[in-house]
């Protein structure tokens, strides 16, 4: 019997080593919750900016001027709001993830983390460039669906190197993005759902699954 226990221990230890050296497991669920709250706040700021309307044609005059050009006020608002959210989200996300890695006694920035970040950023960068192109061509309606779709693709791509659960989050974001592309008048609502509410729900799920 002793022998059996010993072999079982060996197998378990090997499993742990394989997991730890191939996946970034310090991803923090709480970080997801905070990122979601920031996105929710950013979305509500947008709701306020657009005169408390979620439906695009109603606030079209705040986006385009009478000759069909994008208003510079709108672009500045978009830029400031997005940058503020990005900086806050990156800051809190990184902080909580480092804290979790420390608690587990794992290195924060090793090959596994690098691989995850690189794979996450390939679709993300492609999406970013694509959105800049959309803006220069004044295709504002498609910005939000494209954001959701490319973010979903990024998550699916990165999920191979971190918690597998992220994959399903990616799939949901893509579906949301595709529906949003069709009903693009309600883009703001979809954006709040994808980046705000989904992050919070998923973050809580990860938190209770792995951090309890």
């Amino acid at each position: 019997m002793d022998n059996k226990q010993e072999q079982l221990d060996t197998l378990q230890q090997m499993r742990k080593l394989m997991e730890q050296s191939s996946r970034f497991i310090s991803l923090s669920g709480l970080a997801g919750v905070f990122v979601g709250i920031i996105a929710l706040a950013g979305g509500l700021v947008g709701y306020w900016y657009f005169d408390y309307s979620f439906y695009y044609p109603d606030y079209g005059y705040l986006v385009f001027d009478t000759s069909g050009e994008l208003l510079s006020e709108f672009l500045i608002f978009l830029f400031l709001n997005a940058t503020a959210m990005l900086v806050l989200a990156l800051f809190i996300g990184t902080y909580l993830t480092i804290r979790k890695a420390k608690k587990k006694g794992l290195p924060m920035w090793d090959n596994v983390a690098k691989r995850m970040v690189i794979n996450l950023f390939i679709p993300l960068a492609a999406g970013g460039v694509f959105i800049l192109t959309l803006l220069t061509q004044k295709q504002v309606e498609l910005v939000v669906p494209v954001t959701l779709i490319f973010y979903g693709l990024a998550l699916i791509n990165g999920s191979k190197y971190t918690l597998n659960d992220i994959r399903y989050l990616g799939i949901i974001q893509i579906i949301l993005g595709l529906i949003c592309a069709y009903y693009n008048g309600y883009a703001l609502l979809f954006w709040i759902m994808g980046f705000g509410i989904l992050h919070i729900v998923y973050g809580l799920y990860l938190h209770f699954k792995y951090e309890r």
């Binding site: 060996t10 230890q13 090997m14 394989m18 050296s21 191939s22 290195p107 090959n111």
Partner: peptide, 21 residues
């Protein structure tokens, strides 16, 4: 066995990483 476990799920792993893990 531990060394092999780490190597089979990675392309190239350096000495320092093995040592720390």
């Amino acid at each position: 066995l531990g060394i092999m476990s780490i190597l089979v799920v990675n392309d190239w792993v350096d000495f320092k990483y093995l040592k720390e893990t």
